[in-house]
Deep mutational scan, measured.
Amino acid sequence: HMTFVALYDYVASGETDLSFKKGERLQIVNNTEGDWALAHSLTTGRTGYIPSNYVAPSD
């Protein structure tokens, strides 16, 4: 899985969403939902949907 870094803070709007903080590292599990991606946080160990425009690929 590619690793991504959060560009902004995001507060989950539902139970299936994943909250994260700017700078948090995430792995995209499934990116077939258009503007949303299923992601796993390497920081918190949690998995949920995130807005895909809130993250960018990290080196």
Rank of each mutant, 00 (worst) to 15 (best):
H1M: 13
H1K: 09
H1R: 06
M2K: 12
M2P: 12
T3V: 15
F4W: 14
V5E: 06
A6Y: 00
L7D: 04
L7G: 04
Y8Q: 09
Y8P: 00
D9Q: 04
D9P: 04
D9W: 03
D9Y: 01
Y10Q: 01
Y10M: 02
Y10S: 01
V11H: 10
V11L: 08
V11I: 12
A12Q: 05
A12H: 04
G14S: 13
G14D: 08
E15L: 11
T16L: 14
T16Q: 13
T16D: 12
D17A: 09
L18W: 03
S19Y: 04
S19P: 05
S19R: 05
F20A: 02
F20I: 11
F20H: 02
K21F: 08
K21S: 10
K21H: 09
K21N: 08
K21C: 11
K22D: 02
K22N: 02
K22C: 06
K22G: 03
G23Y: 04
E24I: 00
E24Y: 05
R25V: 15
R25S: 10
L26V: 04
L26H: 00
L26S: 00
Q27W: 14
I28C: 06
V29S: 08
N30L: 13
N30S: 14
N31K: 12
N31T: 13
E33G: 14
G34F: 06
D35C: 09
W36Q: 05
A37W: 15
A37N: 07
A37H: 10
L38T: 03
L38Q: 03
L38W: 14
A39D: 01
A39S: 01
A39F: 05
A39I: 05
A39R: 00
H40R: 12
H40V: 15
S41L: 02
S41I: 02
L42V: 07
L42A: 05
L42F: 07
T43Y: 06
T43W: 07
T44G: 02
G45R: 03
R46A: 09
R46Y: 08
R46Q: 11
G48A: 04
Y49T: 03
Y49M: 10
Y49K: 06
Y49S: 03
Y49P: 02
Y49R: 09
I50P: 00
I50K: 00
I50Q: 00
N53G: 13
N53H: 13
N53Q: 10
N53C: 12
N53S: 14
N53M: 11
Y54N: 03
V55W: 07
V55T: 05
A56E: 11
A56L: 10
A56R: 11
P57E: 09
P57W: 13
P57H: 10
P57G: 08
P57T: 09
S58Y: 15
S58H: 12
S58Q: 13
D59F: 12
D59N: 11
